[in-house]
């Protein structure tokens, strides 16, 4: 997994609460057996005038001009600014895959749905929770200023706005460590295989049916 340490990037505003995983990536695109290639169908129903299919040529489809990601000023954004309960709905990892494939490395919101939040870390996306009032003021600034960029620094756990204002953020120490070092969860866990085996040996005595009839 790629490391994320520090980045300065354009911000795109997604000014709706409860953006769900079906909106992030509609289900007709979930049939792929790959992890990549979902970017062109991110927010498909909001982004295009027609209904997309997995085999559509996305470059020829009519765009909804008023949709935020279709506006010229937000092209190349790597940071998504969002509202409360972002990513609610399904556990499908296609949602973070689509965001990542599109180019988003960071999503900022006052709150996230639990499973989505977890899935972000596993796919090299940083979901950052900030106070609602702080998110509100970021929205105002993004709307007011074309080319608005934020600097996100995972090492110092700070966001810096164009005017130099510093916004600290909290992040789970383990998650931060994994993102900073691009670590793979499975390798980390397998480093503890003796613990897993010891647990199994103990559990077999307490609950043998979990091992014989499984």
């Amino acid at each position: 997994m790629d490391k994320i340490v520090k980045m300065t990037a354009l911000v795109a505003p997604m000014d709706r609460a409860n953006v769900d995983t079906d909106a992030i990536i509609p289900k007709q695109f979930l049939k792929s057996i790959k992890r990549t290639g979902f970017g062109p169908n991110l927010f498909d129903e909001w982004r295009y005038e027609d209904v997309g299919q997995p085999d559509s040529d996305n470059s020829n489809r009519p765009l909804r001009k008023d949709f935020v990601l279709n506006q010229p000023r937000y092209q190349g954004a790597k940071i998504l600014l969002a509202r409360e309960n972002f990513g609610c709905g399904s556990s499908r990892e296609h949602a973070p895959w689509a965001l990542k494939d599109y180019g988003f490395d960071v999503v900022i919101a006052p709150s996230f749905a639990d499973i989505f939040f977890n899935n972000c870390f596993k796919n090299g996306i940083m979901p950052l929770v900030l106070e609602e009032s702080v998110v509100d003021s970021l929205f105002q600034e993004v709307f007011a200023q074309e080319g608005y960029q934020l600097t996100v620094d995972l090492e110092t756990q700070q966001i810096v706005t164009p005017s130099g204002k510093v916004i600290p953020f909290e992040i789970d120490a383990f998650r931060r460590h994994c993102l900073l070092n691009g670590l793979d969860d499975i390798a980390l866990t397998l480093a503890h295989q003796e613990d897993i085996k010891a647990y199994e040996a103990k559990r077999k005595l307490e609950a043998p049916w979990l091992f014989t009839h499984a």
């Binding site: 990892e93 977890n118 596993k122 969860d185």
Partner: peptide, 9 residues
């Protein structure tokens, strides 16, 4: 409920 990375894990 888990995501695909967790299924693999």
């Amino acid at each position: 409920g888990i995501g695909t990375s967790e299924v693999e894990h």
